Deep mutational scan, measured.
Amino acid sequence: IINNLKLIREKKKISQSELAALLEVSRQTINGIEKNKYNPSLQLALKIAYYLNTPLEDIFQW
């Protein structure tokens, strides 16, 4: 999986903590996703895309 979450999140000036709060997950979860240590569920990936107002395929590429 190619993961552009960190790049997109930083472009939008959103911290890991802010995104985690919006998604109701821990900051460690966001960190793990960004470091490719954790693959989000489809539901979480869709929520990330929604809150970042970015197409899912721009954030994650399988």
Results as ranks from 00 to 15, higher is better:
residue 1 I to C: 15
residue 1 I to N: 10
residue 1 I to Y: 15
residue 3 N to A: 04
residue 4 N to Q: 07
residue 4 N to C: 09
residue 5 L to M: 12
residue 5 L to V: 08
residue 6 K to M: 08
residue 6 K to Y: 06
residue 7 L to P: 07
residue 7 L to G: 12
residue 8 I to G: 02
residue 8 I to P: 01
residue 9 R to D: 01
residue 10 E to G: 06
residue 10 E to V: 11
residue 11 K to A: 14
residue 11 K to G: 13
residue 11 K to F: 09
residue 12 K to E: 07
residue 12 K to S: 09
residue 12 K to A: 14
residue 13 K to Q: 13
residue 13 K to A: 10
residue 13 K to G: 15
residue 14 I to D: 01
residue 14 I to K: 05
residue 15 S to E: 05
residue 16 Q to A: 09
residue 16 Q to N: 03
residue 16 Q to E: 06
residue 17 S to V: 12
residue 17 S to M: 12
residue 17 S to H: 12
residue 18 E to Y: 08
residue 18 E to D: 11
residue 18 E to M: 09
residue 19 L to I: 04
residue 19 L to Y: 02
residue 19 L to A: 03
residue 20 A to S: 07
residue 20 A to D: 01
residue 20 A to W: 03
residue 21 A to W: 07
residue 21 A to E: 12
residue 21 A to M: 14
residue 21 A to D: 13
residue 21 A to G: 10
residue 22 L to T: 07
residue 22 L to N: 09
residue 22 L to V: 12
residue 22 L to E: 07
residue 23 L to V: 15
residue 23 L to T: 12
residue 25 V to Q: 03
residue 26 S to C: 05
residue 26 S to E: 07
residue 26 S to K: 09
residue 27 R to H: 10
residue 27 R to D: 10
residue 28 Q to E: 15
residue 29 T to H: 10
residue 29 T to S: 08
residue 29 T to C: 15
residue 30 I to F: 03
residue 30 I to H: 00
residue 30 I to S: 00
residue 30 I to M: 06
residue 30 I to Q: 01
residue 31 N to G: 09
residue 32 G to L: 15
residue 32 G to W: 14
residue 34 E to K: 02
residue 34 E to H: 01
residue 35 K to I: 12
residue 35 K to Y: 08
residue 36 N to C: 11
residue 36 N to G: 15
residue 37 K to S: 11
residue 37 K to F: 14
residue 38 Y to C: 13
residue 38 Y to A: 08
residue 39 N to M: 15
residue 40 P to M: 06
residue 40 P to C: 09
residue 40 P to W: 04
residue 41 S to H: 06
residue 43 Q to N: 11
residue 43 Q to K: 13
residue 43 Q to G: 12
residue 45 A to E: 02
residue 46 L to D: 04
residue 46 L to Y: 10
residue 46 L to F: 07
residue 46 L to C: 14
residue 48 I to L: 08
residue 48 I to N: 00
residue 49 A to M: 03
residue 49 A to V: 04
residue 49 A to R: 02
residue 50 Y to H: 12
residue 50 Y to E: 08
residue 50 Y to I: 07
residue 50 Y to S: 07
residue 51 Y to E: 05
residue 51 Y to N: 05
residue 51 Y to C: 09
residue 52 L to A: 01
residue 52 L to Q: 00
residue 52 L to W: 01
residue 52 L to T: 04
residue 53 N to A: 12
residue 53 N to G: 11
residue 53 N to V: 06
residue 55 P to A: 07
residue 55 P to S: 09
residue 56 L to K: 03
residue 57 E to G: 11
residue 57 E to I: 08
residue 57 E to C: 11
residue 58 D to V: 12
residue 58 D to P: 01
residue 58 D to E: 14
residue 58 D to L: 12
residue 58 D to H: 10
residue 59 I to M: 05
residue 60 F to G: 00
residue 60 F to M: 02
residue 61 Q to K: 10
residue 62 W to D: 07
